[in-house]
């Protein structure tokens, strides 16, 4: 091949050259993505209040409400954690688990996922009290932005990207309060339980009625593949049957009765 022949093929290494920044970014980011040290775990409302009062007057705070069974929340947390760690203390991010009555679920989660930001766990009573005080909807994730004075500057429903959090805390774009999806079109419900059980059947019927057959995924815990899928979504393997409705990047709480499921879906689709 003469030099002209080589020139013809120069486009290939030129394009592949762009893989270099990808590799560098992935390798350097991975160290931020997976912090070596797990952030602190604080239990109880007092712990949350002391974190907030410590930050008030000094730096903005991102308060993210989540739960281990909320798949969009789990996907969103590393983005918030990256903002928390990359801004080097300029912004405090707190992940408040208000959806796991059992602390064990959160401890199991922390075995698998490392986050540098502080995680606060509230029991059922404290979570309900906080939801009422803060006016939180029955939807996760919810993120409340507090400015440096400690006043709420806005909130976002549904999972967001790292760019969104960065731009919001820097004031480039205002935190919006808009629910990402406000109709039942994108409703998707996971039903987990023994299919021969009457309550599972009732939940499944209700789910199909609400979301249509295509909008429902049912999992039988006796099948290893289904258990694996539930685990990969961080959905509980205990307390079945249950149903969890999601719309887009917002999920409702885990519901164990038809009435509960209906009211959760109503909360998701105002």
């Amino acid at each position: 091949m003469n030099h002209r022949g080589y020139l013809e093929w120069l486009w290939l290494p030129m394009i592949l050259l762009f893989l270099i920044p990808v590799a560098i970014h992935v390798s350097t980011h991975s160290s931020i993505e997976s912090p070596a040290v797990q952030g602190s775990l604080i239990t109880g409302r007092d712990g949350l209040d002391s974190l907030l009062s410590e930050a008030a007057g000094k730096r903005p705070v991102i308060v993210n409400f989540w739960a281990t069974w909320c798949t969009p929340c789990v996907a969103e947390l590393p983005h918030i954690d990256r903002v928390h760690s990359s801004l080097d203390g300029a912004v405090l991010a707190i992940a408040v688990d208000i959806g796991d009555p059992d602390l064990g679920s959160l401890l199991d989660f922390r075995e698998a996922v490392t986050l540098s930001l502080p995680v606060v766990w509230l029991d059922e009573r404290e979570a309900a009290q906080l939801k009422e005080e803060w006016g939180l909807p029955d939807v996760l994730p919810v993120t409340v932005f507090l400015d440096a004075t400690g006043s709420e500057s806005g909130r976002a429903l549904g999972a967001r990207s790292e760019e969104y959090f960065l731009e919001t805390v820097r004031g480039i774009q205002p935190p919006d309060t808009v629910t990402p999806v406000s109709d039942s079109e994108g409703l998707h419900i996971v039903v987990a339980g023994d299919p021969s059980d009457s309550l599972t059947a009732a939940l499944l019927d209700a789910a199909i009625e609400l979301a249509g057959e295509e909008g429902v995924d049912s999992f039988d815990p006796s099948l290893p593949s289904d258990r694996e899928e539930l685990e990969s979504r961080y959905l509980p393997l205990e307390g079945m049957p249950y149903a969890q409705p999601c719309i887009g990047t917002s999920c409702g709480r885990i519901s164990r009765t038809v009435e509960d499921l209906t009211s959760t879906v109503n909360a998701l689709t105002p």
């Binding site: 990808v22 992935v26 980011h29 991975s30 993505e33 997976s34 798949t71 789990v74 996907a75 969103e76 590393p78 983005h79 996922v113 990207s161 990969s232 961080y234």
Partner: peptide, 8 residues
């Protein structure tokens, strides 16, 4: 390409 399992 996922830098964090479970994330986008």
């Amino acid at each position: 390409l996922r830098m964090v399992p479970g994330a986008g």
